[in-house]
Design a protein around this nucleic acid. Structure first.
Length: 107
DNA sequence: CGAGTGACCGCAA
DNA sequence: ATTGCGGCCACTC
């Protein structure tokens, strides 16, 4: 909300955004980090995701190229399968309409 | 407690 | 247009 300054840890904000990503939608680490207030903390988003709760739709989070990242819970093939399961056209671990599916959080 | 690593991005030349 | 480099935060061991 209005404050949303630094009451919660950075990871809390990242998890909140990722958890709010709708189906068929994708987001990039830089975008999430940017919406968290630190566009330079893109690495943190990835790091948190590596240890983050598998309950969050990390499979909807991709890199700048719209491709699946590594270290996903289970494997990239699983992530690709999940995206396909969400009607997301992904080819060779790369989202086809990534630029079109790039979702923007509702502030 | 301290140090290192990490699924990255943006910019510059 | 392409390539190379640096930098920030949090988590884990």
């Amino acid at each position: 909300m209005s404050d949303a300054k630094s009451n919660d840890s950075f990871k809390a904000r990242v998890y909140a955004i990722v958890a709010q990503i709708p189906e068929g939608r994708l987001m990039t680490y830089g975008d999430i980090a940017g919406y968290c207030g630190q566009a330079y903390a893109a690495r943190v988003v990835g790091g948190l995701a590596h240890f983050g709760p598998s309950e969050l739709p990390w499979h909807r989070v991709v890199n700048r190229f719209g491709g699946l990242a590594s270290g996903f819970h289970g494997g990239r093939e699983v992530q690709a399968q999940l995206l396909k399961n969400e009607s997301v056209a992904c080819t060779d671990y790369i989202v086809d309409d990534f630029k079109e599916l790039r979702w923007r959080p509702t502030l």
